[in-house]
């Protein structure tokens, strides 16, 4: 409102451009790191062109396995066996998510600063952070395989415990974001802490928390494939065996089974998640596509 009747001001009034030194330094530093890395890493870059000769050969071998009549032996057996392993992966992922959800649900309240006192929140958050830092594969090797032995159960437990960290953190954040109004209103009617949690906090936060569970399920499907490499069950175990034996036709079948099952389950899970979030009383747009922070 003050500068309404300006005619062209003298050129001297133009501000000086801010210094570009910082962005230049950042750019040079990045370039230096990259060059140093390329030089230092013992990657044997000369092997890279092999991709263009090897990959087509192997891919065509894989396709050969895929185009065989899947109803004829031995192909029918390969397809059913592979699907069996993939279903085991799904089962591990689901059970792991259920365990993670059961354990993380109470912990998430203890980690929410608007519910629990500070001296509870801090240690619980620390615990969740430690679990979050441990990858499932370490949990499996160090704890679950010694206790549960090789197989799907060890993998399931590793996924379950591994899920607690992320689920607890994300759920506690959802709890911290609930509208305080209803909580106060319930307190005002004389409800105790547990009652106001049940009737004011849970109804607000639950849709998002359930969406996190589903999201974690999607992550666990991929994680369960990794666990097979160390003998903790699922599709990963057969995958590494097939690669060792270089059975390319069966590798092709296995990869296709993984891709198809994962994509289908992802689609279903995403649709349910969207339904939960938008069907809820508190739609939050950023959750529609899943939380940004994962793992």
């Amino acid at each position: 409102m003050t500068t309404t009747q300006t005619r062209s001001a003298p050129t001297g009034a133009r501000p000086k451009p801010p210094s570009k030194a910082r962005s230049t330094v950042a750019l040079l530093a990045t370039a230096a790191i990259v060059i140093a890395t390329v030089w230092a890493v013992d990657a044997r870059w000369e092997r890279f062109p092999a991709i263009f000769t090897e990959a087509p050969t192997y891919i065509s071998l894989m396709v050969e396995g895929l185009v065989q009549n899947p109803l004829e032996m031995p192909w029918s057996e390969y397809w059913t066996k592979t699907s069996g392993y993939m279903f085991e992966s799904l089962q591990m992922a689901w059970m792991g998510t259920v365990i993670g959800a059961l354990l993380s649900f109470p912990l998430s309240f203890l980690a929410a600063s608007n519910v629990a006192p500070r001296w509870v929140v801090l240690p619980v958050r620390q615990l969740l952070n430690i679990i979050r830092a441990l990858p499932e594969i370490v949990l499996a090797i160090a704890f679950m395989i010694p206790i549960f032995g090789l197989g799907a159960l060890a993998g399931t437990m590793a996924l379950g415990i591994g899920s607690v960290g992320t689920l607890g953190k994300l759920s506690s954040e959802a709890i911290e974001e609930v509208d305080r109004g209803p909580v106060e209103a319930l307190r005002a009617t004389g409800a105790n802490t547990l009652q106001s949690l049940r009737w004011a906090v849970v109804p607000q936060a639950l849709p998002e928390i359930v969406a996190f569970w589903l999201y974690r399920f999607e992550i666990n499907i991929r994680a369960s494939a990794i666990l097979g490499i160390v003998g903790a069950g699922g599709i990963g175990s057969i995958l590494s065996q097939l690669f060792n034996a270089r059975l390319w036709d069966r590798i092709g079948i296995t990869l296709v089974v993984i891709i198809v099952v994962t994509v289908i389950v992802d689609q279903i899970s995403a649709a349910v998640r969207r339904r939960i979030i938008f069907g809820s009383a508190r739609p939050s747009a950023e959750m529609a596509t899943g939380p940004v922070e994962v793992a």
Binding site: T4, T6, S8, T11, A13, R14, P15, P17
Partner: peptide, 24 residues
């Protein structure tokens, strides 16, 4: 660009982020 900014009398803000300005 500078000329245009001078015409609307806001050239002194040239290197400021747009989000830091008022609506007008």
């Amino acid at each position: 660009a500078f000329d245009a900014l001078e015409r609307v009398g806001i050239v002194e803000k040239a290197y400021i982020r747009a989000s830091q300005l008022s609506g007008g």
